[in-house]
Each structure stands twice: as structure tokens, then as C-alpha cells.
Design a protein around this nucleic acid. Sequence first.
DNA 1: GCCGTTTTCGGCCCGACTGTTTTCAGTCG
Length: 628
Amino acid sequence: MAISNSEIAKIFRKISFLLEIDSSKEDIKTNRNANFKNRAYSRAADQIENLPVSIASIYKENGLSGLLQIPSIGKAISSKIEEYLNTGKIEYYEALKLKYPIEIEDFLALEGIGPKTLRAIIDTTPIKNLDDLEKLAKEEKLRKIPGFSQKKESNILNKIESYRKGGSRFLLGDIYPLVDQIEKYLTNQKNIVETIVVGSYRRMKETVGDIDFLVVTEHPVNVIESFIKMPQVKDVISQGTSKAFVKLNNGIDVDLLVVPQDSYGAASLYFTGSKEHGISLRRLAQARGYRLNEWGLFDNSTDSKLAGETESEIYGLLDLEWIPPEMRENHGEIELAKKGSMNWTEKVENLIDYADLKGDLQVHSNKTDGQMSIEEMAYFARTTFGLDYIAITDHTKSLSITGGLDEQQLLNQVTEIQEINDKIKSGDFFVEENIPKGRKSIQNLDLINGKNPKNSNIKNDKDFRILVAAEVNILKDGSLDISNNVLDKLDVVGAAIHSSFTLSEDIQTKRLIDAARNPSVDIIFHPTGRIINKREGYPVNISKLLSVALETNTIVEVDAHYNRLDIRDEYIRMAIENGVKLVIDSDAHHPIHYAFLKFGISQARRGWAERKDILNTLSVVDLLKNLK
DNA sequence: GCCGTTTTCGGCCCGACTGTTTTCAGTCG
């Protein structure tokens, strides 16, 4: 099994933490580098974690000089990576662990207790893990350490408790309704001029650790008071005059930031992040003799405020174009956004937008594991989400748990869908008396309806079209479970892996490549098979798959279901840089799932995809021309 | 330990909140 980037990143994070434990106050006074070495390791960890390609393969192909190309990786760190790839060990790290024999994972993720606090504790009582620390606190021994108190001791117990309860990040799609609730609550408060959600939520990251709100007001104290009194609030973590942090009953942390109007842009820039994007901006400011913080952009020599009300004016004074939030990850967007860059203007103007999709090419019906009929799925696709076409992609026979269709059933589906399409064309389909019974069950989801732009570019409902399709199973040996002469009767064929997840990377890649080479297969569905926070997905050499996709004119899917988002943002960027075409599909098993399309679009924006890269921005006629 | 529009030495993002102390260190985002 190849060594993963996150495995190496984790080690560097631990080295960074141990170095912080190691550097006492005296060290920092005498050795000015002591405080920066740990940051270097932590920056390297960030870099490695965000790398789209495997660091093991970089080393395999280009050796040490390949590693040195990576920003924040220099001589010392690259040779430690080399050592780890070759021996599975880093001596430097082993020595640090020997000096501080603690279970670092326990303390790395523990909020509120950092390396200095930990050092003070282990200098007094050698502890190894969280259990030891908890015991110490319960025995009231922590309060005896200089600089500690009874209050600090009980705080530490609280932190341990909430650490044990909570943990992982939340899926973007799961917290969407909650964010809406809080947004409405804040908007209804007196004195609030403006409310926006910032943080990783605004960047539409697939998971978020907490929810950040930014509010414009001239009455910060009142606003913070009403924020901490929200019904969902369980604990107030901290509360000041410009920000407050709370924990909700369901375990999510919510941060509120309060600024006056003339700091709105600076604050939204600062708290939308990402952290690395912000750091880069502040470095640019620094190089110009400016200082950038959440209150504004200031000239250091005169201490006067140069900008603050809008993001654009701040970017502008740093000689940058405005950068869409989804792209703010410090993955090269700042270099590209330099003023006067034609490429950038074109890129941002053509970036796939939330109203750009005309159709959805992965939709399931109750013929297999969907919850509604083909007619109902079509009805809502048109009337609620304004789509121009959908492809009905029910599962096929080897996926027996869903009652997958066999050859004959697929052929029947061709006839059945033809009949519905005829009805649509005659004008007898999208009419009052034809409103499906299931209408009610989705009516209470105003939230989703309200937030989905209608996408249609066709004038007449009669032009809506259902495509006959299937989500065909890729078998263990790379063949399909439906014969090509039947698949050729369908408008669209998607192929996907649903079994044998534990095979090796070589075999999984071969299965997908074989499917891509099959002349009947138009699209590879959810190519990596991951379920976010639940399973990693099977191992795939994505660059090999992409090069075969390009060669065979096979489309790669961005599955927009928020628990899949497959392929992920970095792979989307790889795909479009290589000229591979993509589609964004909801994978709907119920009409409300069409709302997931927006998560696929945001993922594509995070991968810098333009309209031209996403084939279901085309009309149905043009789309069909682009298939095999 | 990394890095370079102040370029091979001497910098390294910036401010709010907490707790303990009374001017600041630690932690976080």
C-alpha cells in the first residue's frame, strides 16, 4: 500500500507540535529561530495535505528535486520525506517522541489546550494521554501547577468532554438547513444591517468544521447578546465586543463576527478564508507597506485606512481582481488574479455558475431504488428546478439489492419513456390535473426551491425531454453486466463500480479504464466511490483514468450528492487541465435531490471548471452530439 | 526550516478573547 500524503502530513504536524512543546520561553529568547521552525513543519504539512498528486509518486518520478518543487518544502524536510518513503521512519521524529513520550494525537485535536499548557503539565507530572490528563484534573492536581487555577482545571475537563463527544467535520449538505435557520434568526434581529455566512461554508467546502456568520451593525453588544440567546445555543464558549463563539445543542460550533459597515469587505475577506489565502493577501499587503486585518487595509506609514467596505477595493489595492470564494484556497488563484491578466478575467467570467446546468444525467426512478416514478421525476425536474432534460439511469441487474434492471426491462424502459416523451410533446404532461400525488411531500421544502435558480433555456415545456439511460455495473473483470447491443438502444450510458471495493489500485484502475474503452459507455459515474466521512473509496490512479477518458471521449462525472462529491475538487482541476469533459449530476433518488446539483456546481467552481468543461450546460441536442 | 520586487541573511500574518496577572502569554481563527 502506497504511503499517502495525509500520513506524511500528519507526521509533520506532530513534529511541529512537539517542537512547540520543546521550545521553552528561554529558548525563544536565546534562539530566535526556535519559534519558527515548528511553523515551517506545519506549513509543509498544509502543503502536502492539499497536494493533488501523491507525494510518493512525485518522489518516484523525480526524486528529491521533485519534492523541492513543492512550496514550503526545502532541503531538510524533503530529505525527511525521502527517509520516510524509503524506511517508513524519520529518525528526527523518533527522537522527539522519545523525549516527549505522549500520545500526540490525543492532544493535537484537543481544543483550548496547546503545547505550552501541555508542557507545563508534563513538567510537573508525566502524563501520556487524555485519560491521564482527565484523571489529574479530577484529582484536583492540575490546579496546583503554577499558572493554573481551579477555573482552568474545570475548563480542561470541559474541553476533554466535548472533544470525546464531537469530532469530525460536518457535511456541507447536512448543515444547509441549519445555516438557513440561523441566518433567518439573525436577519430578524433589530439593528442588523446585513448578515452573511462566511468561513468554509462560503467557500462551499465539502465539509465544514464550524459555521461562521458575519453581521454588519452599529450596535455590536446588543447583537451579540441576541446571538448567544438563540434557542439552539447550548454553551457560550467566548464572548467579546466584536465576536462570540457558541456551541449548539447538536454539537456544532457557531462563530459570530460583528463589524461596522466600513469594515464589511475586510471582515468578509478575513473570515471567508481560507487561512492560507488570507495569509498570502496579508503578505502582499506587507510588501506594499500596508497592514491588512479584519477592520481594513491600512497604510503603515500614515496609519490611515485605505479600504475596508468591499472585498473588491481591497483586492484592487493589492493589484488583484476579485476572487470568487470557492477559489480562495491559495492554490494558485492569487498569482492568476494579478491585475491585467486576461486569462483571469476570462476564467472568472466563464466559471460554471449556479444557473448554468440545463439537464441532469443521473436520475433514478422507482423501477429500482428511486422513490418516485419516471413521470414524477420528470415533472419536478421541469416545474421545480427548471431543467430542460433528465436521463433516467436506473441500476442494472447485478446490483440485485436495488432490483437492478435486466436487458429486457431496459428495452421496456425505452418504450415507456418514448411514450412519456410523446405525451410531453403533445402538451398533455405539464398540466394542472397531472400534478403528481407526491407533490405535497416536497412542497414543505421551500428552502430548497427558493435557493435553486431555475435553469431553463427552452421556451416551452413541450421541449422537455427524458433520455433513456442506465447506471450500468462494472464487474470485477472490467466488463459490464449488460450487453452492448442493448446499451446501444439507450441515449446515455453511465458506468460505475458498486462492488469489490477492496481490490488493488491497479485492478480498480483497469476496471474503470476498460469501461471507458467500451464504445457504449458515455460517462463514468462517481469514479472514486467515496462516501465522505464514511468510506475512502476504492483506490484509483486518477491520472491514468483521465488520460484514457480523453483518448476515448468518455465523460467523467461530478456526482453532486453532498455525501459523494465525486470526483473531488482537485481531480476536477486535473480533469479540465487535461481537456477531459465533465458532467454534474444530482444522483437523485427523489425529486428533492435535484437540489444537490448546487453542491456539484460549487465543487466544480472549486476545481476552476468553466461552462465549456461541463457538458450538461449544453442543450439536449448539443449534448447528444458530444456523446460517443 | 523556508524563502527571496529589502534575495543567501534576517525576516517570518494579524488581532480578539481568556485567564491570571496588573502587562502578558496562550490559543484560536
